[in-house]
Nucleic acid binder design. Structure first.
Lengths: 307, 307
DNA sequence: AATGCTTCATAAGTAAAAGCGATTATTTAC
DNA sequence: GTAAATAATCGCTTTTACTTATGAAGCATT
């Protein structure tokens, strides 16, 4: 039988190392938990594969000595065994979710309001985890990058009809009207949607989210007319503050601590947008992803309905 | 059964790589020369050892995709398989005697007269072989270093009674008398040993070889009296040239091209010294050693009895 | 939705091997 | 010489690895 190195198995290399270190087949067998006979046969098998002896058996109580070929193979065996050990360690870390990279898709309002708390928690739990954020205005882009495996995880805005993606709902985020702080309104009451009819408004650019708003406004009989548009929430809010007009924004996107604007719920309310965290459907996820989702859900829940 | 990575075998890693590259269990099986079922079981075994799936089977004609754990293990698997391949290549070279290091013990006369031709031949055959020479006056030191595995091979002077060493005879090297070139002798005849009695002589220092000479001289009734001693053959020869006296030297140690000295065989002759090449007894030798010995023997034989 | 196609898993059987215990041969140490 | 240590070998049992055959799941096409 013309064996080649391809037939070598880890067990042979482990036996080689054990015998080399112990200087004896019997003691190597003890260490490995085998019988002396087994180790003898393992080395014999290795020698068949190598094509020549790896040990000189000197007989009697003298140590087995390696042949040149034995030393050569041992050199590589040690590297291989070490590598296997390293793989085991990294697997343990992977199971614990403490290593590797986690690439998360997000968008502006989530980045500002939700993510800092979650990321801070995760970093406390697993400081070696390499967390990266990819921010985009475009929900579809986030979905595409999830499907392309560029993102491990992404915050998304519903409705989701892409079956490449699996997601769970994080929260409902109502749309509110943002008014300049000096406008007189009945501060405790909701803002009648009808009052927006004919008013110059500030809004986001025509992307998925803004289109949802506009469609609903129109079916409620309000035709939006925008005098300023930006995808930057801060810019929109600044324009409201400057008196350009009111804006309908998702509550999460509003900097509510700003005393120079007022925030009112709408009457009748628009359908709130739904925020999800999603991942590729049907793929095994790194445990770190699952843990991140868990923490996101519980953190968001704990925030209560400040929305 | 709580398997760990220790139970992994090369075959599993090869299967992992094949499936990862082919994207299919069946095609991987073809490539490896197994049945699809076998590969399926190998991957299943790997997953048992890893503790989690390494592939997401998407069903239907879609490619199998790796899980995070799978990618991690594959990374190491590739390194391990490459290492094994490298070991195979190096073993081939070892078998061919074309790599590694060859440390050769030698002494002055051999270094000058025999080695250059042999080394030149070996270097022509196997240019990548790293040949190193260790020169010593002291035969016992060479033997000791051979036994200590510091030398792969050594030229030695007999008689050899050390059973740690195995050796073969290279040549017999007769002792001759070296005389100044201007001395009148019957150029074609041997030199009577008795003429040395009472003469001031030049010789080597009291090491093994010189002691052999002195013992024989004495039993032949000649008491050597040295007025100059050196272990450097060139120095001895220079002193003869300068008229300090004759010297008994091994023929191989004489620079015979020197017209200023005359070389005569002795009558009766001394027992010639025997030159061997030796190695550690009972140890497997690198093929390069055996090849070197072969070439040494044939080269020396071809030189004929120029001695 | 029924079918065919591709893919992988599983079951059953067989052949190979890996391992064990006992024995033997060889060598050193005393 | 005898005792101790070491590894190879033999017969045997158990384990495993592989094969073939079959089943199940998903996609694509009709």
């Amino acid at each position: 039988m013309n064996m080649s190195l391809q037939n070598i198995e880890i067990r042979h290399l482990a036996a080689l190392r054990a015998v080399a270190e112990e200087g004896s087949f019997g003691r190597a067998a003890d260490r490995l938990g085998f019988s002396q006979s087994a180790v003898s046969q393992q080395i014999a098998g290795l020698e068949r594969a190598v094509g020549q002896p790896v040990f000189d058996r000197l007989g009697g109580p003298r140590k087995a000595e390696m042949t040149p070929a034995g030393r050569l193979v041992l050199k590589h065996a040690e590297s291989i065994l070490a590598r296997l050990d390293l793989a085991g360690q990294e697997l343990d870390k992977l199971r614990a979710g403490t290593n590797g990279r986690l690439v998360i898709g997000t968008f502006q309002s989530v980045s500002v309001k939700l993510l800092p708390a979650v990321v801070s928690l995760v970093r406390k739990e697993t400081p070696d985890l390499d967390i990266r954020l990819v921010e985009s205005d475009d929900n579809d882009e986030l979905i595409q990058r999830l499907a392309d495996d560029e993102l491990d995880l992404s915050f998304l805005i519903g409705p989701l009809d892409d079956d490449r993606i699996e997601a769970i709902e994080i929260c409902r985020d109502p749309f509110v009207v943002v008014l300049p702080g000096d406008v007189e309104t009945s501060s405790e009451h909701n803002y009648p949607l009808s009052e927006l009819e004919g008013r110059a408004m500030v809004g986001g650019q025509a992307c998925s989210c803004q289109e949802l708003i506009d469609d609903e406004l129109r079916s409620a009989g309000v035709t939006p007319e925008y005098v300023f548009r930006s995808n930057d929430n801060g810019a929109v809010q600044a324009m409201v503050r400057a008196g350009m007009g009111p804006s309908i924004m998702a509550l999460l996107a509003v900097e509510t601590d700003d005393p120079r604007v007022k925030v009112r719920h709408l009457d009748p309310p628009l359908t709130p947008r739904t925020i999800y965290v999603g991942w590729r459907r049907g793929r095994t996820r790194p445990p770190a992803v699952d843990r991140f989702v868990e923490l996101t859900v519980s953190t968001t829940r704990n925030r209560g309905d400040q929305n």
